[in-house]
Design a protein around this nucleic acid. Structure first.
Lengths: 191, 191
DNA sequence: GTCAATAGGTATTGTGTCGATACTAACTCT
DNA sequence: AGAGTTAGTATCGACACAATACCTATTGAC
């Protein structure tokens, strides 16, 4: 059984990357988790930029995430904004600083230089197998998928090309369709 | 460029696994890092079971690791043993409890169930591409490889099948040859 | 419509990670 | 013999993280 070696590789790769992220993050006053939260917020849609969504995505409790977000707010990387319809809900928006820090630090340099050494076909192969691992993790363990809007079961495309969400019935822009949604459901054939 | 998507997948996979490891680890009173340290100690050779080696492997400072090892010692998962030749050096040995906890928790269940859903060829493909990513990370960033003894540049095999280390000139058992060494150097053709 | 259940969020407390700095002891090299 | 180096520990402060408790707003059952 090579489950062990798959785990060994993943653990090792994750450690190397994490060390690198820590090193470059510390220079900007950011912990690895903080950077991951910012990274998520830079890619999620307007339904998914809330504390619970971040907690779900990172697999942490809402209490823990609340603290981390507090640090990020006081450091000026995010801003909180009350929801208009549901007064319990808070939306998190990246500040200019927050956005810049994400695009500077991600993807980490250690990975950039590693991928530079790979052929185009190798890159595609790696992307495909990682995709496969992730999907298998998600389906085998019944986890939320956090996929991009346009790959969602509820994503509707009309004849005129306009898009809308089958759950909220809201219209979506092309940019919306690329973003991560916390309500994402994989399509039938992809399960 | 798909460096970003490779990073996205790796980050996501690492988070899912880490969450699972945390959950099952907490039940046994172990933090994720503690489990990784134990996991390393369960696989490394007798030159590599020291605090500095653990620190190098995990990419942390020796101070940090010293603390973590202190916790592991007082919880009864490892024992410290003075080196006979160099009185600065401490060797770390897993206790029975420590060994059991590693074999219980690793590989994590989330990964086991995911890998169960894969075909034999998929598994081999995944193992191969992860191997490629790791090697590329290591060579492109000139990191220590921490490979297994038998794949080392200094590993010598005699005509009678006996093995020895070209650095220490010590004889090696078959079991030794499988273990992780902190002095590991990749062979010429693998660079 | 009212009241219980639920969901989003914060506050507090305790344990542990982590780096930085400083320190001791032992080894090496010249 | 003395300078530099290496293995390891100690201490401090910032932060991660879970658990618990708590508040407010929404939902849902009747």
């Amino acid at each position: 059984m090579n489950t062990e070696s798959i785990y060994d590789y993943l653990e090792r790769i994750a450690n190397l990357i994490r060390t690198d992220v820590r090193k470059t993050g510390v220079a900007k006053g950011l912990q690895p988790v903080q950077l991951e939260a910012l990274h998520y917020l830079s890619r999620c849609n307007r339904y998914s930029n809330t504390p619970v969504a971040v907690a779900d995505y990172l697999g942490l409790t809402k209490g823990t995430v609340s603290q981390t977000l507090g640090v990020l707010e006081s450091s000026g990387f995010i801003e909180k904004q009350a929801d208009l319809n549901d007064r319990r809900v808070v939306h998190l928006n990246l500040t200019v600083d927050g956005a810049r820090v994400v695009s500077d630090a991600i993807p980490p340099n250690i990975l950039k230089s590693a991928v530079d050494g790979l052929s185009e076909t190798s890159r595609n192969e790696i992307t495909a197998t990682l995709n496969q691992v992730l999907r298998e993790l998600q389906t085998a363990n019944k986890l939320k998928t956090f996929g991009s809007c346009k790959t969602c079961r509820y994503h509707l495309t009309q004849e005129d090309g306009r898009r809308r969400c089958g759950l909220t019935m809201e219209w979506l822009t092309e940019a919306d369709a690329e973003k991560i949604c916390r309500e994402h459901q994989p399509t039938a054939e992809s399960v």
